[in-house]
Amino acid sequence: MKKLIFIFLLILSCTMQSQQTHIYIVRHAEKDISDKTNTNPDLSKPGKQRAEKLLSVLKKVKFSAAYSTPYKRTQQTLKPIAEYNAVEITDYDPKNNQQLAEEILNIYSGKNVIIAGHSNTILEMVKAFGAKKPFEEISEDDYSNLFHIIIEKDKVNLESSKY
């Protein structure tokens, strides 16, 4: 019996020591620009295809939460992933990146979270989680960045890719 308890505690200790939090950050997909006066446009057809591609790239990741700015284009970018993972999309204010980062790390430590933002906000979000920005800005026509932040204890790693 003591041997079983020891093995259980050893396994528990190992899993707690190697606990990683995974944060995925993307810019919203291509928006519909046919109506220049619309300040909250839907995704365009290519944008909807990109949102589906994002799901196919991240299908093996089990997300515990999805965060989006309160705009249609960011919410629609995460919709396929949120539906696939049966999670609600939670709105956040992109002016409060540090607050959101702290909230996510407190609530979802050891889990996977995805965040959708904008070309002028996602690099600051990367920074809010303690990672170094991989470049200074994202151009207005670049929708393909996928930032994966891995946090383990006080160590923060950033993997930057295109999808």
Rank of each mutant, 00 (worst) to 15 (best):
N106C: 01
N96P: 03
K62R: 13
R27Q: 14
S18K: 02
E52W: 06
L43Y: 12
T69Y: 15
D35E: 08
Q75D: 04
Q99G: 01
K60L: 07
I107L: 13
G47P: 06
K95Y: 14
C14R: 04
T37F: 15
S18M: 11
G47R: 04
S18D: 06
V113W: 09
V113H: 06
P94E: 01
Q76F: 11
K36V: 07
K31M: 07
S34E: 09
K53A: 05
Y71S: 13
K48M: 14
S44C: 10
G110P: 11
D93P: 09
C14G: 07
K72M: 02
S34Q: 10
V26T: 12
G47I: 05
N97D: 10
C14E: 10
I89E: 12
K53G: 01
I81S: 12
R27P: 10
F63T: 04
L55Q: 10
T15H: 13
K95Q: 12
T37C: 05
E83S: 09
P94Q: 02
K53M: 03
T69L: 03
N85E: 11
I89W: 05
S34W: 12
I23W: 12
Y108N: 07
L43W: 13
F63W: 14
A29N: 06
P41Q: 02
K60T: 14
I23H: 12
T90K: 14
T37L: 14
S44G: 11
T77R: 00
T74L: 07
K48T: 01
S56Y: 14
Q98G: 05
A101L: 06
A29S: 13
T69F: 11
K48G: 01
D35N: 14
V113P: 02
N97W: 09
T77I: 06
T15L: 13
S109F: 05
H28G: 02
L105W: 15
T15N: 13
E88C: 03
K48E: 15
N38V: 00
L55K: 14
L78S: 07
K62P: 07
Q19R: 08
K111R: 09
R50H: 02
Y84D: 01
V61Q: 12
N106H: 10
Q98K: 13
Y67A: 00
Q98A: 10
R73Q: 03
P70H: 09
A86T: 03
A101Q: 09
S44T: 10
S34P: 04
Q76H: 08
S68P: 03
D91Y: 07
C14L: 15
S64N: 15
D42W: 11
P46T: 04
T74K: 02
L54Q: 06
E103N: 12
Y92F: 15
P46A: 00
Y67L: 01
L12W: 05
